[in-house]
């Protein structure tokens, strides 16, 4: 067990080192793709706080993601770059506020209801930006400049450079991972997990379930907003589709693909799914057909995500069916139940 922990720690360090060094050997296109993967991974990890750890299947996280993007678009002055010190807190704050309001209403419900209510409220924001002329209606609107990171008139970072942008996104993703790990390991995180495993018991032990879930929902919404802010800055464009529930569902696929019980699993899921999309898009016009079939196949074949595949390879003893295949008819030792 200790050796396994050491190995996974070494793998993590190696991965971070490769990620940091990526701009020195990857072309700009792949650098931009990597930024996109990290941002979608951040969204999926944020979503996983409520889905995987809280047991609440939310279908409105794209709304927080897109809302933050729209706040950046709306607070940017038309012909110059917006200051990150103003627009970023505004965007994340707006996402957190939306999560507070939607969460306060939706968390009154359970199970299927919760899924449907979050879906409906998420689409409410979609239709708000789609039907009104607030920011270009259904056409969306452009963000011509990336946000300005400067103190006074002294520029600190130039986000227009793909390399710098990537490092900033990488830093944020790592910070997001650290934050989520701290939350999940804190007493709050344990209480959240308890509310998932046995709500009645947690409630009878005196945990304020509703408030715990709402707090997790707001944190998760704010992180989704953080991701959406940088996604909008990267694309230079916001459109209502960014808030649509298909984005939420895609993030859910990433969560399940990478495994729900770990903080970083969804990031792996994002990398796999987006890599797959990239590959399918290059090979056929009707790539969505294949993607849909692959999603269906994964759900039916691997209920616990692709981690299950790795686990099967690394820890075959945890899977009785595999053990029987590998070592047939080995008599059990006494006391080794």
């Amino acid at each position: 067990m200790a050796r396994g922990a050491l190995t996974s720690r070494l793998v993590a360090v190696a991965l971070v080192a490769v990620a940091v060094a990526l701009p020195f050997f990857a072309a700009t296109y792949y650098l931009q793709l990597a930024s996109k993967v990290l941002l979608m991974g951040l969204l999926a990890m944020a979503l996983n706080l409520v889905v995987g750890f809280g047991g609440l299947v939310s279908l409105c996280h794209a709304a927080f993601f897109g809302l933050a993007g729209y706040v950046l678009a709306l607070t940017s002055p038309p012909y110059e770059a917006a200051s990150i010190w103003i627009t970023l807190p505004a965007a994340v704050g707006a996402a957190a506020l939306a999560a507070l309001v939607i969460g306060a209403l939706s968390l009154r419900t359970r199970g299927i209801y919760f899924i449907m209510v979050t879906l409906a409220f998420g689409e409410m924001l979609f239709f708000f930006f789609h039907d009104t002329r607030v920011a270009g209606g259904s056409d969306g609107t452009f963000i011509y400049f990336k946000p300005l990171v400067a103190i006074g008139s002294l520029p600190l970072l130039d986000l227009e450079k793909a390399r710098t942008f990537y490092w900033v996104v990488l830093g944020l993703t790592l910070a997001g991972i650290a934050l989520l790990v701290v939350i999940v390991r804190s007493p709050f995180g344990h209480a959240l997990a308890a509310s998932r495993v046995n709500e009645r018991r947690a409630r009878s032990l005196g945990f304020p379930i509703y408030r715990i879930r709402l707090a997790a929902f707001v944190i998760s919404g704010a992180l989704a907003g953080l991701s959406g802010y940088f996604a909008a800055a990267q694309f230079g464009y916001v459109a209502p589709q960014m808030l649509g529930w298909h984005v939420s569902a895609t993030a859910l696929v990433m969560v399940v693909l990478g495994g729900m019980r770990t903080v970083t699993g969804p990031l792996l899921g994002a990398a796999i799914l987006m890599g797959l999309e990239e590959f399918l898009r290059a090979s056929t016009e009707h790539w969505k057909l294949l993607e849909g079939l692959i999603i269906i196949g994964l759900v039916l074949a691997f209920p616990d995500g692709v981690r299950q595949l790795f686990d099967m390879a690394l820890k075959p003893h945890a899977f009785p069916a595999l053990r029987r295949m590998r070592r047939p008819a080995v008599p059990r030792e006494a006391g080794n139940a």
């Binding site: 859910l252 009707h286 993607e291 209920p303």
Partner: peptide, 24 residues
């Protein structure tokens, strides 16, 4: 008997497939 999450994902996959078939 599977959890709602699996149902959400499977029907999402179904939407992608049906929509693309409609397109074709």
């Amino acid at each position: 008997g599977r959890d709602h999450l699996a149902q959400v994902l499977l029907s999402f996959g179904l939407i992608l497939v049906l929509d693309e078939i409609r397109h074709i």
